[in-house]
Every structure is written in C-alpha cells, then in structure tokens.
Design a protein around this nucleic acid. Sequence first.
DNA 1: ACTCGTCTAATTGCATGCAATAATGCGATG
DNA 2: CATCGCATTATTGCATGCAATTAGACGAGT
Lengths: 237, 237
Amino acid sequence: MQYAPDPHPDESPLVPAAGLRGRSAAHVAERLRDMILAGELPPGERLSERMLTEGMGVTRTPLREAFKILEAEGLLVIAPNRGAQVVKLSPADVDMAMELLAGLESVAAELACARGTAEQFAQVAALHARMVACQRAGDLVGYFRINQNIHQNIVDCAHNPALSRVYRAESARVRLYRFAGNRVSARWSRAVMEHEQILLALQQRQGPLLRELLRVHHLNGWRVTRLVLENEVQPDL
Amino acid sequence: MQYAPDPHPDESPLVPAAGLRGRSAAHVAERLRDMILAGELPPGERLSERMLTEGMGVTRTPLREAFKILEAEGLLVIAPNRGAQVVKLSPADVDMAMELLAGLESVAAELACARGTAEQFAQVAALHARMVACQRAGDLVGYFRINQNIHQNIVDCAHNPALSRVYRAESARVRLYRFAGNRVSARWSRAVMEHEQILLALQQRQGPLLRELLRVHHLNGWRVTRLVLENEVQPDL
DNA sequence: ACTCGTCTAATTGCATGCAATAATGCGATG
DNA sequence: CATCGCATTATTGCATGCAATTAGACGAGT
C-alpha cells in the first residue's frame, strides 16, 4: 500500500502554514478518515508514522493526535509500542453495527415524519432520482454513495444533531463492509423498489410504516451483504 | 477549581513508569473523564495544560492526546490557541441527547427481551433492590449512580456491544445535567414505581411493553429535569 | 474614569530529541 | 533445513524546546 508521499514537500506543503495553526491534528484526522472510508487504507493496514508524516507534510505530534481521534471514532486501533492499524471488523462486529444502524434509523423514522420539512423531503427525493440514474447507468460506486447519502438525509430529517452525529459515525465504521453487499444485481433492483416505498412513506409522514419499511430494507440488505462477506454468494457486478 | 496537584511527585508519581508505556494518554483521559463526570471539572471549566501536567505527573504530550480523545467523545471542546474546556450543553443540546438516549433504550428494549439471559435480569433486579434501599436511606447520590447502572444494564441485555458503547458514551455526555432532575422528591418516588414496572416487563420479556414503559419513563424524567434546569421548579432534596 | 494601544508574560501548537520497545537480519546450533 | 539467540535497526512513547498566539498589565489620550 502506497502512502502517496508529497513529491514537492518544500514547494507545496499539504498543510500550509497560513492561519491553520491549531487545526493540524483535525486536518490530518480528516484526511486519514477519508482515506480509510475510500478504502485506500484497507482494514488491517498498519499506519507507519514516518511514512504518513512524510506523505502529509506534518510532524509526528499532530499525526499521533489524529490517531487518537480516529481511535476514539472506532476507525483505528492503537497497540502500545506497535502503532496504529485500520480496524478490521469481524462479521459479528458488522452484524451488531448494522443492528444499531437499523435501530437508529427506526428511531429517526418517526421523528423525521413528525418534524421533517418539505424542503428536506424534496432533497431526499432529488437524491433518490439521482440514485436511480446511477442504477440505470450501472454506476455502482455512485449509486452506493448516494444511497448512503439518502439514509443520512432521512436521519437528518429528525432534526436531532446528536442522532445525526452518532448515525454518521457508526455508519462510517461499517461503510466498506456494506459496500460489498451491493455487488449483487438481484439485490440492487429490489433495493431501489424498497427505496421508492420508503420515500413515499416519508413524504406522507407515515411514521410507523416508514419505520417498518426501513427495518425490512435493512434486514434484506444486510442478509445479502452477510452472504457476500461470508463468501456464500458471488458478486455478479 | 483545584487540580489536586500531586504532593509528592518524586516519591509516588500518579503515572508510574512500570510497564505503563503506551497507555499514558488513555490513562490521563480516563482520569479526566472521571473528574468531569464527577463534576470536579464543571461544564465550562478551562483546562490549563500546565496545571494538569503538574497535578497528574505527566508531560504535555500525553495530556494533549487525552484532550483529543475527550473531544472526540464530546466531553471537551478545544479552541485553537485557547485550550480545552469542559463542554457546556444548552438545554436544547440535552433535549436532543435525551431523545437519542430514549431511542437507544427503546431499541435495546426489544432486543433485551429477545436475548437477555436470566442471569442478566437477576442482576438488574439486584441493582433495583439496592436502588430502592438508597431511596429509603435518602441517599440521592447512590440512588442516581445505581439508576444509571440499571439503565446501562438493560441496554447491555441486548447483547449488542456497539449499542452498549454508544449508549454509554451518550449517557456520559449528559450525566451531570440529568442529575439535577432527580432532586425533586415527587419525581423520585414515581420513578421508582416506573422502575418496578420496567423490571417486570423485562423479566416477562414483553418487548413492546418494555419499550413503551421506558419511553414514558424517559419522558417523565426529562420533563422534570428540564423544569429544574430552566429554574422553573426548585429542587426539594 | 474609561477606552485604546502597546508591551510583556503566559499559554498553546508543533517540531524534535532521547529512551524504551519491537522488528529484523544473521550466524550458531540442533 | 529449521530454530533459536543475539545484535542491529527501526519504530514508537514521551519529554522538551521554540515559535506563534493570546491574555493581561500598564500607561497615554480623550
């Protein structure tokens, strides 16, 4: 795995000095988080301080602070004297995380129907349209990204920042693992149908129905994903 | 606010050298977390690096790493060039957090009824007995601690580590604010009655009922707490 | 007296150095 | 040939130093 070291560290530092004092660790954490969520730093990858500092143009102190942040977020594990690794979740871990996400969404569902604004619902509908376009175009990556976005937006409709924050963090932890499950065409088309119903229930503010639809949607999606992760079903996409 | 500086730094360092290399930041974070949750570092308190390093016998590097951890947990805020402060939640923040906690408990309720073991239920029952004893003895602090413990234990009955972890973290964030609401005797006795019903529903594995009981219990408790926080009701304990 | 500006001291952010630990290479031995 | 032991190297954990920024004291001007 490459760390993309900066080819011109003296000419264009990735963390320039101008007015960014005091945000170095947060900046590095964000960069690493993006790399982990993009799969550039795969689960189990060991993060060498030297390589990363050279690659990102910062010194060890802010990098190590970023490690602590990401460890608290559950994206890294730090073993004493042996550095940081990207967390590697077992199927059981993902199972538990998915159960939690489904629970959070079910809580959000009723709140969203009670408090979501028409503008927010329109935003979800617009995302849905874009997602369908991605499906038609066979753009799996774009589809998955927008799909995640839709679910986060539904949660955000609950107008509860704490709920949104927790959902975002827990969702991030398992993003890579969920992606695997979408690589099955039969599931893909069915998921879109489920999303149609979800969107309708949201727009009609049918809380209990939305809740049940999301529950089943999660159950279905995770069942397929689990089969793929356990190599019992081969992805056909 | 005092930082309890170590009176004998050379004779008994609070973070001794023996085999604890690599856990300094975690150790400091735990200590600070305890101090915050105990109210020794009240909301809004500014955390001076110099005072804390002198008080805890560590240097600034692990202390600053601990700050980052606690910031990620939502217990501190770090303003660039101006250091760390204990978070000060607005009533609206606490409101949102309580809604999230209620949601997490309602999710846990059904899972706990489905999966909790008889031993776990007995543990909850034992805690309940101790809590009642505290109420009889007028031990508000002990009551509150065991009360928190009971709720965490019910969530733990769901056998979902991710759910337990999130519940623990979010619960910690608002612990100090919830405590205020228990200082009203009328609420106190009613809360114990609600707990009796909750325990029964759990033991009888009546998921939907437990869910509803917890929802109402939260609603009632938080209503009183909010009144106290907003100074509309005077604590009588 | 109050406000504003300046200077100084204190504090924070980050870089770097040193010591402890773990990883690695290599020869000796079974 | 594989394995163990040891020395070397690399890496991590923490302490400390320096520069940037802020907070506070002090005095001039209104």
